[in-house]
Simulated assay, not measured.
Amino acid sequence: EVVDLRTIRPMDHETIIASVMKTGRLVCVYEGVKTLGVGAEISAMIAESEAFDYLDAPIIRLGGAESPIPYNPELEKAVVPQVPDIVRAVRAL
Rank of each mutant, 00 (worst) to 15 (best):
Thr35Gly: 01
Pro70Val: 03
Gly24Val: 01
Ala78Met: 12
Glu48Arg: 09
Ala89Gln: 09
Gly64Gln: 02
Pro84Leu: 00
Asp4Asn: 14
Leu55Phe: 08
Leu55Ala: 08
Val90Leu: 14
Ala40Arg: 10
Arg61Asp: 01
Met11Asp: 00
Ser19Asn: 11
Glu76Lys: 14
Thr15Arg: 15
Thr15Pro: 05
Ser43Gly: 15
Leu26Thr: 06
Val79Met: 03
Glu41Gln: 12
Leu36Ile: 07
Ala40Pro: 01
Glu50Asp: 14
Ala51Asn: 13
Glu76Ala: 05
Val83Lys: 11
Val3Glu: 07
Gln82Met: 03
Val38Thr: 12
Glu41Ser: 07
Ser49Trp: 05
Arg25Cys: 05
Glu50Gln: 13
Ser67Trp: 00
Lys34Tyr: 07
Val90Ile: 15
His13Asp: 11
Ser19Asp: 11
Pro10His: 03
Glu31Asn: 02
Leu75Ile: 00
Phe52Leu: 14
Leu26Ser: 09
Val79Arg: 01
Val33His: 00
Leu26Gln: 12
Gly64Leu: 02
Ser19Gln: 11
Thr35Ile: 04
Val79Leu: 04
Met11Pro: 05
Val38Ala: 11
Met45Ile: 10
Val2Glu: 11
Ile16Tyr: 13
Phe52Pro: 08
Ala47Val: 06
Ile16His: 13
Glu74Thr: 13
Asp53Ser: 15
Leu36Gly: 01
Arg6Val: 00
Leu93Lys: 05
Leu75Trp: 00
Ser67Leu: 02
Met45Leu: 15
Thr23Arg: 05
Ala44Phe: 08
Leu36Lys: 05
Met11Cys: 09
Lys77Asp: 02
Ile8Trp: 04
Leu62Gln: 02
Cys28Glu: 08
Ser67Val: 07
Val29Asn: 06
Pro58Met: 08
Ala92Asp: 09
Ser49Phe: 11
Val87Phe: 02
Lys77His: 09
Ser43Ala: 15
Ala44Pro: 00
Thr15Lys: 15
Gly32Val: 02
Glu66Asp: 11
Asp4Cys: 06
Ser19Val: 05
Val80Tyr: 02
Asp85Asn: 12
Glu14Val: 09
Thr15Asp: 10
Ala18Pro: 08
Val2Met: 11
Glu41Val: 05
Glu41Leu: 05
Glu66Tyr: 03
Leu55Glu: 01
Asp4Tyr: 06
Ala44Leu: 11
Glu48Cys: 03
Pro10Asn: 06
Ala57Tyr: 12
Val38Ser: 10
Glu66Trp: 00
Ala78Lys: 14
Phe52Ile: 10
Ser19Trp: 04
Val27Pro: 00
Asn72Cys: 13
Ile86His: 04
Val33Tyr: 00
Pro58Asp: 06
His13Ile: 05
Tyr54Leu: 03
Ile8Phe: 09
Gly63His: 03
Leu36Ala: 11
Lys22Ser: 14
Gln82Ile: 03
Gln82Ala: 03
Thr15Glu: 11
Ala57Gly: 06
Val90Gly: 08
Gly39Tyr: 10
Leu75Arg: 12
Arg25Ser: 09
Val38His: 10
Ala65Gln: 06
Leu93Ile: 14
Ala51Cys: 12
Ala57Arg: 15
Ile16Cys: 13
Leu36Val: 06
Leu75Met: 07
Tyr71Trp: 13
Ala47Cys: 10
Pro84Lys: 01
Pro70Arg: 08
Leu62Val: 04
Tyr54Asn: 14
Ala65Arg: 05
Glu31Leu: 01
Phe52Thr: 08
Ala89Ile: 04
Thr35Asn: 07
Pro68Gly: 01
Asp53Leu: 13
Asp12Phe: 06
Asp85Pro: 07
Phe52Asp: 02
Glu14Ala: 15
Ile16Met: 13
Met11Tyr: 08
Asp12Gln: 13
Arg9Ala: 00
Asn72Gly: 07
